[in-house]
Simulated assay, not measured.
Amino acid sequence: MVTTSGFTNAPATRAILTFLVSASLATSILSLKPYLPLKPTPHLWPYLQLWRILTFQLAYTSSTELLFSAAIIYQLRVLERIWGSRKFASFVVASYGLCMAGTVSLGLVSKMLTLGWWGYIPSGMTAIIISLVAVWRRELPRLGGFKILLDDSSTSTRGIELSEKWTIYLLTAQLALSQFPYGLLPALVGWIVGNAWADELVPGGLVRWRVPGWIVGEDAAGKRGREQYEGLRRRLEEENQDGMREVSDGVARGRQGGQEERRGFLGGVGRYFGGGT
Rank of each mutant, 00 (worst) to 15 (best):
V78F: 05
W197S: 05
W136L: 02
K147C: 13
L185G: 02
L143D: 05
P34Y: 02
P40H: 10
G217S: 10
S110R: 07
D152V: 07
S248T: 12
W51C: 06
T41S: 06
V135G: 01
R142F: 07
R263C: 02
G124R: 00
A94S: 13
R52I: 00
M100P: 01
L184V: 12
G97K: 06
T64Q: 02
G144P: 06
K165F: 14
T8M: 04
Q228G: 03
E200H: 10
S154G: 13
E261C: 11
P141Y: 09
S95P: 02
A71K: 02
A187T: 04
S28E: 13
S22F: 09
V133S: 01
W214S: 13
D249H: 08
V216Y: 04
Q174C: 15
W83V: 04
T103A: 03
V133C: 10
T155W: 11
P46E: 03
T27R: 00
V21W: 00
K33G: 01
L266Y: 10
F265Y: 15
S24T: 03
R81I: 04
G267P: 01
E139K: 13
L67M: 15
E230P: 01
L149R: 12
V189T: 08
S153N: 14
E238D: 12
K87W: 05
E218C: 04
I53K: 05
A10H: 04
L149D: 10
T172E: 10
L140P: 00
I82G: 01
K111D: 03
L140K: 11
L44D: 09
W197C: 07
P186Y: 02
E237H: 10
A173L: 12
Y169K: 06
A23N: 02
F273K: 02
F273L: 12
R77Q: 13
L171C: 10
R86L: 05
Y60S: 00
L48Q: 12
R245D: 12
M100N: 07
E246S: 13
S154F: 13
L188S: 15
P37A: 01
S131H: 04
R234L: 15
G264R: 15
I29S: 02
Q174V: 00
Y74R: 03
K223F: 09
K165M: 08
G225F: 09
V251Y: 07
A89K: 04
G159W: 08
K111F: 11
V92R: 00
A173C: 08
P212F: 11
I121T: 05
R210I: 04
E239W: 06
L50R: 03
